[in-house]
Every structure is written in structure tokens, then in C-alpha cells.
Design a protein around this nucleic acid. Structure first.
Lengths: 168, 168
DNA sequence: TCAAACTTTCAAATATTATTGAAAGTTTAT
DNA sequence: ATAAACTTTCAATAATATTTGAAAGTTTGA
């Protein structure tokens, strides 16, 4: 396979995966493009390569910076801004995990805790089932939470090494 | 807090979480409703409770069955179909993990493997960066894949027990 | 066989989300 | 101070996803 074709496929695949995970397709594609690019790229180049508008490129790049996945770079003597992606896959995974935890898991855990204050009659099946489901999900959420916290602090080799030691 | 209010909040929260994860909000809400319901419900009751149309309810219930999260139930002497959700949180997590793995991770791993056949000159930085990124992501994807496979087979207590043993 | 009870389908309508592009804003060099 | 180079904003538009509801389909019992 040619490099050009491979790039296309990679950008496409990353974009699709992103959209399945609630991440805007363009954002995932820009990230893919920067991931496989050895040098930092300008907004202009990104617009060109992916055929997207200036506004879209600008917003997307801003979002990606917000996720901590790319950074601005300035070249001496140039006014243009260049963007480059962190190429360390483990960092990327951690960054994404951290953002999603903050935006999604944490709020859910908060609500689940609030739901502990629901009062009712223990003889009432509706109440009992509600309580049980909330408690069970709470437990699962907290386990996930704890595991993510560990992952966020961990070194890649240690993390997978530990996982596979038990999972064989 | 009153049970009715708690139910509302729970359904809302589950719906929001679902939509952040690329799962249709209604689908997550129907699942939430069935999760906290002690008895199986009819399409009619679900439509009523969530104010959704018959068509929507029908499609959503079909999807949820496709994900293995709910099942049809028939009551003797009745023509109506009742639906009930598996209440075991660990099963739910596994079911979701399995479906998403199948639909999303597996295809990506397939493409990443195809991208190994990209040919190029080792002196070319574009080629080198591409190769490296693809290889790194491939490695991560395979680790995740392996961990999910273990989880899919595992018993809940064993799984978390093992995780926390190493993660303290 | 018929009709009531129930379920499924799907084209059209609605709602949501993403994208464009031109205008406004900013920075820098002279 | 000004103009060129560059970035940001955002209302309008386009694309996508979801929902509706009425019609068609199915099953059951008399």
C-alpha cells in the first residue's frame, strides 16, 4: 500500500472511531493528521489537507488543545501558528481518559450520590428496586473511577505489566 | 428526596451519559426506566412514562434487545409483550463492552493491521512517523483488546479484586 | 373466516449537531 | 498610525440523527 493511501485510511478510521465515541469526526481527523505528521502544521495546511473551512479548523484546533492532545508551536521569525500532536500513545490515552472522566463520570457519580437521599418504604418493590440499582451502579462507577485514577498516575509499562500479570 | 423525583433524575442522568457515549438518549432512558422497575413493562407503559411515540418505543426496545440489555417476557393468558432489564450491573457492563468491542475496536484493529503493509523509504520522515504512530496505536489497541477479553470472561469479584490487589 | 389486539415499518417532520465563510478582531513591522 | 498577516467569531446553512404517527403487518380466539 502507498503511504498516501495509508494516510487516508488512517485518518478515516480515526474519524469514524471518534464519531462512535461522541467525539466530533473532524476533531478526530485533525488529530489523526497531526499524529502522523512529522512536523507541526499550520491552520492553512490542515484546512487544505482535510478540505475544511477556516472556521472549522480554528474551532477544532482549539478543542484539541482543550483536550490536551495538541499544542501550539511558534517558529522563530514567523507569524503563523503551528500545531503539533503529542505522539505518545499512552499520554493520549491518559489525556482522553482524564477529560472524559472529568466531564462524564464525575457528574454521574455526583448524581448517584444525591440519589442516596431518596426516601421510601422498604416494603415498596419500586423503592427497593430503585435503591438496589442505584447502589449497584454506584459501586461499579466507583470501581471504574478508582481504576482510572490509578491509570492516570501510572507509567505505561507498569500498568500493562500489572494487568497482564494477573490476567495472564 | 421523593422516589418520583429520584426516578426522573436517574433516567435523565443515564440518558445524558448514554448520549455522551454515542448511545441514543432515548435508548439509555428506556434502559434506565426498566432498570429501576421491579416488574416487566409493556410498550404502552414505556411510551406513557417517557412520553415517546409507539414507533420510537418499538425501535428502541428492539435495539436494547440487540445489545442484550433487555428481554421480552410473555405473561400467561396475555397477548401483550413485556420487557424487563437484566439488573446485574456487571452483566450490563460486560454486555456493553462486548458490543462496543465488536462494533468499534475490532474494525479498527483490522484496519491498523492492514496499514502494516504500507511501503516506503525509511529515510522519509513522513513514512517513519506514520509507521511509528500506527505501530504504537496498534500496540495500545491490542492491550485494550486483551483486557476486554479477560473482562468478558471474568467474574465481577475476581476482576475487581485482581485490579485492586495491584493498584492498592 | 373475521375482527380485535397487538406489533412493526418507514416516509415525512423535527431536532440536533457540525460547517461555512465573511466580517471583525488582533498582532507585528515599518 | 497604518497596513499586511494572521486568528477568531458567529449567524446562516448544511448535514445528520432522531422521532412521529398512521398505515401495513401479524397473531389469536371465537
Amino acid at each position: 500500500m502507498e503511504l498516501a493511501e495509508g494516510k487516508q485510511k488512517f485518518i478515516e478510521a480515526w474519524g469514524k472511531l471518534g464519531s462512535e465515541w461522541g467525539i466530533n469526526r473532524t476533531m478526530a481527523q485533525v488529530h489523526a493528521l497531526l499524529l502522523i505528521s512529522p512536523d507541526a502544521l499550520t491552520t492553512e495546511e490542515i484546512m487544505e489537507e482535510l478540505s475544511i473551512s477556516r472556521g472549522n479548523a480554528n474551532m477544532t484546533l482549539r478543542d484539541l488543545m482543550g483536550w490536551g492532545l495538541i499544542e501550539k508551536q511558534h517558529k522563530p521569525g514567523e507569524r503563523k501558528e503551528y500545531f503539533y500532536a503529542d505522539k505518545d500513545t499512552w499520554n493520549i490515552a491518559r489525556q482522553v481518559a482524564q477529560e472524559r472522566k472529568k466531564r462524564e463520570l464525575d457528574p454521574v457519580i455526583k448524581i448517584l450520590n444525591e440519589l442516596n437521599s431518596v426516601e421510601g418504604n422498604d416494603k415498596d418493590p419500586a423503592y427497593k428496586t430503585f435503591k438496589k440499582s442505584v447502589a449497584d451502579i454506584n459501586k461499579l462507577a466507583k470501581n471504574v473511577n478508582k481504576t482510572l485514577d490509578t491509570m492516570l498516575k501510572a507509567d505505561e509499562n507498569w500498568f500493562w505489566g500489572s494487568i497482564f500479570k494477573i490476567f495472564k
